[in-house]
Nucleic acid binder design. Structure first.
Lengths: 210, 210
DNA sequence: TGAAATTACCCCATTCTGGGGGAGTGGAAT
DNA sequence: ATTCCACTCCCCCAGAATGGGGTAATTTCA
């Protein structure tokens, strides 16, 4: 490994017990130091410049500004900061929103607290610490549904359609006539029971056909 | 935990040394048994029914049928099978393709082999075992680019456009006039230096604006 | 053999799109 | 206070795109 320095951590967690437990736990590691701990996001953001932290351990359900908004704001103020969510919720929406906004990890509180230091180390090694169920959730989000009623060619056409392409350009890309694409799309609409591009794309994405 | 039974593993790996090393390693665990080991995907698929395995540990770079195609085929023949890729390549394309086709984990061979059993256990616990760099790759794929030249409203419009919606339906959804949407889109095209919907969507996705 | 997939063509009407121009309001920053 | 930007809405125009109707040849695979 290269040069390692003590990483500065900020905690944002409204539950006093948990916050103090984390602080105690992290203080036991020589690699990390808790430079500050807040019970709400607003204060954490106000002191962001002064704290010069490397990592924020963030709760999602917070009084006032919620964790997702906080992630957005913090990343915007300093993109170099690494954010790890620590939440009781495993709500799919929240997980993906947090990741989209820039979280580098997502831990659920039911995970053994002994893993916290390991997670921080994993983060420092260029990883993305996640609880077991979150990792599965994230990986599953990539999985395509193999039980699609659409033929391979129809899937191909629908994917191109979903990328905003016109019938003509899809035809060009697939080296067939524009009328052929029209036929495919008619059949796709029948199979998906829709009557428009937007509905077809929505249904196909919802069912993970594409 | 509920009832646990010994999980049946199949290896698909063309390198004899690695294949045998894995076999030896896994045999040392009481929780797993290697029911078969193949040097190519075709044979593994031919014996899929007889092997009745729970988990396949798959290489990606194989002679003949490659690992991605093999994943597709195996998942199609038996969706219950769990697949974990073990590869030297960390190629982004390959990782995402493997996950889209149904892989539940992705390990790089440079990861300590001692972690292999841990990864299998993680899989059995409902997780998605990934090497450090793969986890980061996967999580990073969600991250949006905050340095977008587009305004919040423009991003909103572009997202709806990218979902296949027409100007009119976007207007309805945002409770504004269709002409307003047209104005936004004109400005989006100017900012992104494009002249069509498809180009705008492509550029926005490539740059992770949406 | 028979069903499904892939390819291609015709007609029609409506909507959509992209480009040109202009303009008013409000907020935020200088 | 003024300027810049975001957001809103309006006009004109021509060509492209879309959705629905129908038909049909070839191939592929079970």
């Amino acid at each position: 490994m290269g040069t390692t320095s003590i990483k500065r951590i900020v905690l944002v967690e409204d539950d006093n017990i948990i916050r103090e437990a984390f602080q105690t736990l992290i203080s036991q590691s020589a690699d990390f130091i808790v430079v500050n701990a807040y019970s709400n996001a607003e204060e954490a953001i106000k002191n962001l410049k002064e704290d010069v932290a490397d990592i924020y351990l963030m709760d999602i359900e917070l009084p006032g500004m919620n964790g997702i908004e906080a992630i957005t704001k913090i990343k915007q103020l300093n993109p170099k900061i690494q954010l790890v969510v620590v939440s009781v919720y495993e709500n799919d929406e929240l997980v993906f929103k947090a990741l989209c906004e820039g979280a580098s990890g997502y831990l659920t509180k039911n995970a053994p607290t002994s893993k916290l230091i390991d997670s921080l180390k994993e983060l420092e090694n260029g990883g993305a610490p996640m609880s077991t169920s979150i990792a599965r959730l994230v990986v599953s989000s990539f999985h395509k549904n193999k039980q699609s009623p659409l033929s391979p060619r129809e899937l191909e056409v629908l994917e191109l359609l979903a990328s905003g392409k016109s019938y003509s350009s899809i035809a060009d890309l697939l080296f067939v006539d524009k009328e052929t694409i029209r036929s495919h799309i008619k059949n796709i609409y029948i199979k998906l029971e829709v009557h428009s591009k937007a509905d077809a794309i929505e249904k196909a994405k919802k069912n993970k056909f594409i």
